[in-house]
Nucleic acid binder design. Structure first.
Lengths: 134, 134
DNA sequence: ACGTGTGTATTATTATGTATAGTACACTTA
DNA sequence: TAAGTGTACTATACATAATAATACACACGT
């Protein structure tokens, strides 16, 4: 598995791993019950520390995205259920608010933002499995 | 000036100050050439270190949002020009991509995201001064 | 000239998070 | 048994954030 990691990014490496694996699952490149690379293998290909990969896997498991079986490996969860986590939704709204503010100072209007959202949604596979009314 | 700071947030205090001052300017609560509180005064009301306020002010000046006059104080810039900073736009696209991914796992569709953007845009004053075609 | 209020610079200290390194343990499977 | 799994633990290094204390240069009103 090949991920694009940016060591100079302000987002931690383990978090980049989490993000990109979630993206691969949405794109169905990783499918339910697929086996993920072992901690040692992935740390080898990504040239990062095994502990960093382990931290990413633990976070993914905490979110219910993957499951780990001792001695066997880690696998994409058979069924990923979207949780309407109220706190996360609040955080997301705050993030969007901040996004709109920054966009204003860059001369970007809301319509452009909406178009970008539409574009990325399409890239992730038009019919989104995890959205309720779908 | 009263700002809502969250010491437990992962975003640094100085960055929260930057964000909220930019928001106040968009809402025209702070207007061009208005004087901002002095570093010491704001640090007093917010109960944070003067250096933290200073760092926020320096970042705002770097972005051309405010101007500082030695011995006089800091003021909202007379004219704020939106810069189409390509790097920042690229970062914003990446941020939106990540937002769409996270939204998917929360069961939020793109339409809802677009509506939230519209809502926050309205809150910031419908006619946005810093957007070109406006 | 003086004192006060500006932003700024500097040094030091503390705390936190990230990432690495090395080692060890419990488990599963061939 | 041996190899491969995830995990736990300690230790180290590094960067950033935040605070504290001090000092400097400038503007302004008296």
């Amino acid at each position: 598995m090949i991920l694009n990691l940016d060591p100079r990014s302000n987002t931690p490496i383990w978090e980049q791993v989490v993000h990109q694996i979630k993206e691969l699952i949405l794109k169905e490149i990783l499918q339910p019950e697929d086996k993920l690379p072992s901690v040692r293998e992935l740390s080898g290909t990504l040239l990062i520390n095994p502990n960093t990969v382990s931290k990413a896997y633990q976070e993914l498991e905490r979110q219910g995205i993957i499951e780990t079986l001792r001695g066997k490996g880690t696998f994409v969860s058979a069924s990923i259920t979207p949780r309407a986590d109220e706190q996360k939704i609040t955080e997301m709204k705050q993030q969007i608010k901040q996004l709109v503010i920054e966009a204003s100072y860059l001369g970007i209007d809301q319509q452009t933002l909406a178009e970008w959202i539409k574009k990325f949604s399409a890239e992730l596979g038009g019919s989104n499995k995890y959205v309720k009314n779908d």
